[in-house]
Design a protein around this nucleic acid. Structure first.
Length: 845
DNA sequence: CTCTCCCT
């Protein structure tokens, strides 16, 4: 949010659009406002809408992605009315709310809206909902919009909905809001920024080069000849910040260097945001400075051009951090940070030619979807296709989220909430932690569970490796950990208990392992050898051998990094095997465990009992049950992470990938197309998606199969074709033909395998066969181009083009000059468009 | 050399 200099009097670009917005929402129940930064939308639009006739009898909700932004917006609007927060304008967020009987505009954080909808899908008393900063595409905002649209369609056709965003893929959003939705554009307001590129040399020390770039930029005057204002350096992470700080301190000890990142205490963050009247500062920050907070007084931005993002791996359920190049939208947002106080400069530490992807991935495509799966079940939906999504939840991650919820005991086989799941609804936490809190009653450990959840959720646990010690310290001196204490007390109030043990005794930390086992069942690890553990979810994980828990037979890893090949455990607590049995009664049942042994070339079987990959006891098994054989085969295929597609299946997958791209909006499920709606969307046949859904499409063909070799021989192309919905199958050959006719009269096979990598299909054809071909070939109803590989008579590639007309005009004369000497028996006419196409040599006579 | 950001 951008709250310029002076509250209500200054005129802002958005003022000129307010009438248009009013008119749009008077005539439609939905509208889309696309406004650049500095337009003033966040504070002016909601207040203006309060006077609309449709709003007279109801409240207005304004959604903000962050708590600071919500507080700031509410304060600013209240001030501009000459009131205090809690009168006409209020706010609501986790654990804090300031609304009163007269409040008509509630600024809420996104999670609060989800909660309000779940508790009252009618949104009684609410006249309209405004989504701010929708372009950030947080998981919560995407879900909130899907649920609000559903409520509007089914229950509340009078509810007004306004989506506000900076630059955004308007088409994708109109796809869910409806094509008739009015779109209002508004320009922004900011000072100009001069952009420079100063690429770093690879393979040389990055911090040293960054330091040189910073000092050089500080030395130059700004576009207005000034040499004032702070410098903001944006780096991917804390490690990079520390290294650059050291380097700068060594070279220029007189500089005032300030660090800014999310792991700092709130007070330290606030200090970092305040300009120093004494002199110029160099603020080294993570992406936190991109949109979450605003460093006042910045005139110079130096952008390292990287970001560190979490990548959730559905297969292991773990999240890994990856360092990536920034996307264009982020880079421009970072640059904009130099244009708030006056004309600024942005130095980008990468080459100008460096291509950047336009946007980051929406969170829904990257994140752990178990919270989303939980909310869907609570909403009463088993198929996400029943809702309208800007980006639908990916099938694999959703399936993984549901598998976790089932393991936790909150979802049943039909994807409905169980009794435990319904009880968990009262806890405002991740479903894992909700299960822990709910089941803590069994262990008579509610106070400890509240203390533990508050510690796991807070950011103050960062430096402490030892959970037990950290908790003991907090319980002994609650007042010294204010944020933790507040949160723990809030949870304790929901539980209806006090935060201390009866009789004033110290709370026992003994149930810690069990509590963690309730929240992280797939992270229960069994020791294979000292320091090496197999987790119940199947992943291998390690601890340093010197770690006190390296020899524990069983532990729970509360935190680990997500390398699939071998995760590293950061925080863990020991667990007694008999306690595991008490928590999960299914560990007492014997089940057949079969595994394909590559070494022995056969299926090995035994009877085991335990929790998934954690085996408490084993005994021999004499007859292999067929269902278990099938499950073991599927598991073996999944472990290999590839499927034995032959060429026919690869072509088929390529064709479907192409049609998915062409006909499903943005390549997602549930196409917007008339055809897509009626016939279902083209499926995701990527290897990972097919491995996720193996049971459904391959399972029926595995009856009686006991060997992997047999699977390798199955006709996968036919099996996949059979799994296509009938209307899609009927259109497949017409939309993505296996062969294409060329002017010579011959037909040639199209190669669709490049489509699997997002590229166009390839038609390899001799150049002479294409004479006279005016247009360029296309498939998918003309929506997708075909890439031509034009070949010499000896079938050597001469030219790659998707634009024949331009090749004939520009490329051909050169090719002709070079080739006609080498292949004199073949025609090389001067005017290829007038010549006759042929697959043969020149005719005699 | 463990740690991007955010939320009920």
């Amino acid at each position: 949010m951008n709250c310029g200099d002076d509250p209500s009097t200054t005129s802002l670009p958005i003022d000129a659009r307010l009438d248009e917005i009013q008119a749009a929402l008077a005539a439609h129940s939905r509208a889309l406002l696309v406004a650049e930064p500095g337009a003033g939308k966040t504070t002016r639009v909601p207040l203006a809408l309060l006077d609309a006739p449709w709003c007279r009898d109801g409240r207005l909700l304004l959604l903000e992605p962050r708590r600071v932004a919500a507080r700031l917006a509410a304060g600013f609007m209240a001030e501009s009315l000459g009131e205090r927060v809690g009168e006409t304008v209020g706010y609501r967020m986790r654990g804090e709310s300031r609304v009163g009987p007269a409040t008509r505009l509630e600024v809420v954080t996104q999670g609060v809206l989800t909660r309000m909808l779940q508790e009252d899908p009618m949104l009684e008393g609410v006249a309209g909902v405004i989504f701010d900063e929708f372009h950030e595409r947080s998981l919560e905002a995407d879900l909130g919009l899907a649920l609000t649209l559903d409520a509007q369609q089914g229950l509340r056709d009078d509810l007004r909905l306004l989506v506000m965003s900076a630059t955004l893929d308007v088409d994708a959003l109109l796809g869910v809001l409806g094509e008739a939705t009015p779109v209002i554009d508004c320009p922004g307001r900011s000072f100009p920024v001069e952009t420079r590129h100063r690429p770093l040399r690879p393979r040389e020390d990055a911090a040293r080069q960054q330091a040189a770039a910073v000092l050089e930029a500080l030395d130059e005057t700004l576009p207005d000849e000034a040499r004032t204002g702070d410098a903001l350096v944006i780096l991917p992470g804390v490690g990079e910040i520390r290294r650059l700080a050291r380097e700068l301190a060594a070279r220029a000890p007189e500089l005032s260097i300030v660090e800014l990142h999310g792991r700092l205490a709130l007070e330290a963050q606030r200090r970092a945001l305040r300009p120093d009247p004494e002199g110029r500062r160099v603020v080294l920050a993570t992406a936190i400075a991109e949109s979450s907070v605003t460093v006042d007084g910045v005139r110079l931005v130096i952008d390292a051009g990287q970001e560190r993002v979490p990548v959730f791996q559905p297969r292991t359920g773990l999240t890994r951090l990856a360092t990536r190049r920034v996307n264009r939208a982020s880079a421009d947002q970072r640059r904009g940070r130099a244009s708030r106080q006056g004309p600024g400069r942005c130095v980008r530490l990468w080459a100008e030619e460096q291509p950047l992807i336009p946007h980051g991935e929406p969170e829904i495509r990257q994140a752990d979807l178990s919270p989303l799966a939980f909310e869907l079940a609570r909403w009463g939906i088993t198929d996400p296709g029943e809702l309208c999504w800007v980006t639908p939840p990916p099938a694999g991650a959703l399936a993984a989220g549901r598998a976790l919820l089932t393991r936790l005991g909150v979802l049943d086989a039909a994807c409905h909430l169980t009794a435990l799941g319904r009880a968990c609804v009262r806890w405002p936490t991740h479903p894992r932690l909700a299960v822990m809190l709910e089941r803590a009653a069994e262990l008579e450990a509610w106070p400890l569970a509240c203390a533990l959840v508050a510690a796991l959720e807070g950011r103050d646990l960062d430096q402490e490796r030892d959970l037990e010690r950290a908790l003991a310290a907090r319980l002994a001196a609650p007042k010294a950990h204010r944020q933790w204490h507040q949160e723990a007390q809030r949870l304790a109030r929901i539980a209806g208990v006090g935060l201390s043990a009866a009789g004033g005794d110290a709370i026992s930390l003994a149930p810690l392992g069990e509590l963690l086992a309730l929240a992280y069942p797939e992270r229960i690890g069994q020791r294979l050898e000292p320091g090496r553990f197999r987790l119940a979810g199947g992943t291998l994980a390690t601890l340093p051998e010197a770690h006190p828990l390296a020899h524990a037979p069983l532990l729970v890893a509360a935190e680990l990094d997500g390398e699939a090949s071998g995760a590293r455990i950061f925080r863990a607590v020991a667990l007694a095997p008999e306690r595991l049995e008490a928590l999960y009664p299914e560990t007492r049942e014997w089940r057949a465990s079969l595994e394909w042994s590559d070494a022995q070339g056969r299926m090995l079987g035994e009877q085991v009992r335990g929790l998934d990959g954690v085996v408490l006891e084993r005994r021999p098994l004499h007859r292999l049950p067929p269902e278990a054989v099938k499950a073991a085969l599927l598991a073996a295929l999944r472990r290999r992470e590839r499927l034995p597609f032959g060429d026919e299946a690869e072509q088929l997958r390529g064709r479907v990938a192409l049609l998915r791209r062409a006909f499903n909006r943005n390549g997602e499920e549930g196409g917007d197309d008339a055809a897509g709606k009626a016939e279902g969307a083209w499926p995701d046949w990527s290897t990972s998606a097919l491995l996720e859904t193996l049971e459904a499409w391959l399972g029926p063909y595995l009856d009686g199969v006991t060997r992997l070799e047999t699977v390798e021989q199955l006709p996968l192309a036919h099996i996949l074709t059979d799994s296509l919905a009938w209307p899609l199958r009927a259109r497949l050959d017409a939309l993505a033909p296996p062969r294409l006719s060329v002017p010579s009269g011959a037909s040639h096979r199209l190669d669709y395998t490049p489509c699997l990598a997002g590229k166009p299909p390839v038609l390899a054809v001799k150049l002479q066969e294409c004479f006279g071909w005016q247009g360029s070939p296309r498939v998918a109803d003309g929506r997708e181009p075909v890439l031509l590989h034009l070949l010499s008579p000896a079938r050597r590639p001469l030219q790659v083009t998707a634009d024949l007309a331009s090749f004939w005009a520009n490329g051909y004369p050169e090719v002709r000059r070079e080739m006609r000497g080498r292949y004199p028996k073949h025609p090389w006419p001067e005017d290829p468009l007038a010549a006759e196409a042929t697959a043969r040599t020149k005719r005699r006579g």
